[in-house]
Every structure is written in structure tokens, then in C-alpha cells.
Amino acid sequence: MPPEPTLEFAIPDEFAGRRVDQVLSQLMPDYSRTRIKDWIERGRVTLNGRVPRPRDNVAGGETVCVEPLVEIVHEDRAQAIELDIRFEDESLLVINKPPGLVVHPAAGNREGTLLNALLHHDPDLATLPRAGIVHRLDKDTSGLMVIAKTPGAYQALVAALAAREVSREYLALVQGELIAGGTVEEPIARHPRDRKRMAVVSGGKPAVTHYRVLERFVGHTLLRVSLETGRTHQIRVHMAHIRHPIVGDPVYGGRLRLPPGAGDGLVAAMRGFRRQALHAMRLAFEHPRTSEPMVWDSEPPEDLLLLLAALRAHAEARLD
């Protein structure tokens, strides 16, 4: 079995003065702070060539090398699940995830996931952590994801994510009429009372979300959202925090708000849309092997297009 890929990247200057275990848990959000602390204590993390203690502070600019101990996929089986492949070469795979597809298997949900589909598409992915999945989308969020196919590509993509060199842009339909774009810069952590939810929490992990207005409807706004960080449920939590939750969000969206004067068609479209109206529309980064700039775009799925068309028709009718 091939060794786990070593991850190497620079610590951004903005983290100067903070503990190394805290910094790495923020730069590598798919791994828990407990796991990262264990790697440090095992000597599997170096800063500029020396092994730190978990409590040591970083100065910023150091080169960090991490040799992960990650459980390789064994128990998850390959399944013939159709993939919408937008790009593939020997290093990486870009797919357009449909809504409703879970990314990782979990307790009580071991099959029917993207990971199962990837193992069927390319059995060699079983030798990589998480079958090469380097970032995730929520089950009911659609759109573009990149998967590494080699240890070198995995290392490069994880490092690029940590260095914020991967551009991710989303379409988000939110409640309320926003006049202009803006930025939400609020820390995110587990909700203090409901551990299944995330929330804006003082002392949480830094999170930055930028948004701009694409189209206004009656009582709703279509946004283009870009991420500087990749926290769990980040866009959903941040938009709810500024009181413009994403339409259809079952966790953070609150009750359904119908536009004034909504006809039967729009009412049916909104009540029938039972997921968050969030789509990963653009993905951009440098190719991990060739350094060539790569950009992919994805149209929203049919259910979201139909909802937008119904809102657009309603807005136009009120102008007549």
C-alpha cells in the first residue's frame, strides 16, 4: 500500500502568534484538532524542519510539513452510481454533484454516497485518504467538486485550499431584498446547545464570506457568493446571521416566506423546493501537476432553474 501523501504549505502571516495545533486545525478543516494534535505529538508535523509542540506559537511564513495518519478506505464498497464528470486526467477529477447526493459515508449511511461512486469509477482511489475527496458539499447543495487521483495531487490540492488558492463561487437564493453586496466576517463553531448545527460563535474558527447581488425578485435576492474560508455550513450560517437565510434551508432558513401577491404557480414552486437553494457554480485553481490555471462553470440544476423562473415571472408581472 502506498504511503500517505505528505502535505506541505506555508503558514499565512495572519496566523502569527497563535498555537500551531489551532492554526493547522483551521487550515485543514477536514481534520479535527484532536487528530492534528496527535500527529504533532507523534512527530509527524514539522515547522521549518523542526518538530513543534502543540502549544508552540507560529510566527507566520513557516513551511509546515504534515505526514497524516489517515484511515484508508477499506470498509466502503464501490457502487455503480452515475457521475456528471466535467474534467478528468491522470491527476484529478472534477464532478458536478447533484442535490441529494451525500459526499462521505457515515454511521447509518454507508452506501449511495459520492465516495462509493468514486471507488467504482476508479478503484485506485481506495489508496488515497477519503478516496481523493479534498473538500465537500452538503448533501442538498449541488455543484462542482474536485477529487485528487494521486498522492501528489492530493497534497497539492489540500495545500492550495489551506493557502486559499482555490476559488469557489456559489449561486444562493436568499430571503429578503438585498440592496447591495457585502462581506460577512464572523467566526463559526458548533452551536452551543444543538451540536448538529453550526452557528456564529465568539471564539469559533474565522470565516469570511463575500456576496454580491445578481438579480432581485419580490421578497428574494439571487446572490453570487465567494468563500475565503471553508467552514461547515459557512454560507448557510452567515446568510442566516444577517437575516437573509437561503431559501429552502431546512436547518437555518426558518419558515417559508411567500412573496406578496404570489400566484398558484409560484406558491407551488416554493413549497415544492425542499432543499437549500445553493449551487457551487464555479471552481478555479492551478492544476497540481502543470500549474496551468483551470476554471470550470456549472449551470444550476433543473429544480433551481424552475424556481428562479417562477420568481422572475412574478417580478415581471408586478411591473406590468
Rank of each mutant, 00 (worst) to 15 (best):
T46F: 04
P52C: 07
E75V: 13
E82C: 03
R50Y: 08
H120T: 04
E82F: 06
P54D: 07
L24R: 13
E90Q: 14
E82T: 12
P68A: 08
D21H: 09
A80Y: 04
V102M: 11
Y31P: 01
V66H: 09
A117Q: 05
P98Y: 00
N57E: 15
A106G: 13
E71N: 13
V64G: 09
R55I: 00
R86M: 08
I72E: 14
S32Y: 09
N109H: 15
R55K: 11
N116Q: 09
L92G: 09
Y31S: 10
D21V: 07
V20D: 10
V20R: 09
P99Y: 08
I40A: 00
G49L: 10
L27D: 02
I36T: 03
Y31V: 11
V45G: 05
L27C: 06
R53F: 02
A59D: 14
I85D: 01
V58H: 14
I40K: 01
E90L: 10
A80C: 10
L101W: 01
P29S: 11
G60K: 04
R77S: 15
R50P: 02
N96R: 08
T113N: 03
M28I: 15
T63N: 15
V73K: 10
G108H: 12
V58Q: 14
S25H: 13
V58P: 15
G49N: 13
G100Q: 05
A106C: 13
G112R: 01
T113S: 02
S91Y: 09
M28K: 09
P68I: 07
L118G: 07
N96H: 06
C65W: 03
E90Y: 04
A78N: 08
H104S: 06
R33H: 11
V64E: 05
H74Y: 10
D84V: 09
V45S: 04
T113I: 06
L93A: 01
T113W: 02
D89Y: 10
D38A: 14
K37V: 06
D84T: 08
V103S: 09
A59P: 00
D76Y: 14
P98K: 06
L69C: 02
V102L: 13
T63V: 15
L92D: 08
G43A: 06
D21T: 10
L114F: 04
I40S: 00
V70G: 01
G43E: 11
E71M: 08
V58W: 12
K97N: 04
H104P: 08
G43T: 06
G108R: 10
N116E: 14
L101T: 00
R18F: 14
V73Q: 11
V23N: 12
P99G: 05
V51S: 11
R77M: 14
A78S: 14
L93D: 09
H120S: 13
L69R: 11
V102G: 07
L83K: 01
E67H: 07
Q79F: 06
R110D: 10
T34W: 02
R53G: 04
W39Y: 02
E88Q: 11
G112N: 02
V73F: 05
R44F: 05
Y31H: 15
G112E: 07
F87R: 05
A107M: 02
N57Q: 13
G60M: 08
P52V: 05
P29Q: 10
I81H: 01
H104T: 09
N57S: 13
N57H: 12
A80H: 14
Y31Q: 13
E41A: 00
E82D: 14
E88M: 00
V66G: 10
E90H: 12
R19L: 06
Y31G: 01
I85K: 00
N57I: 04
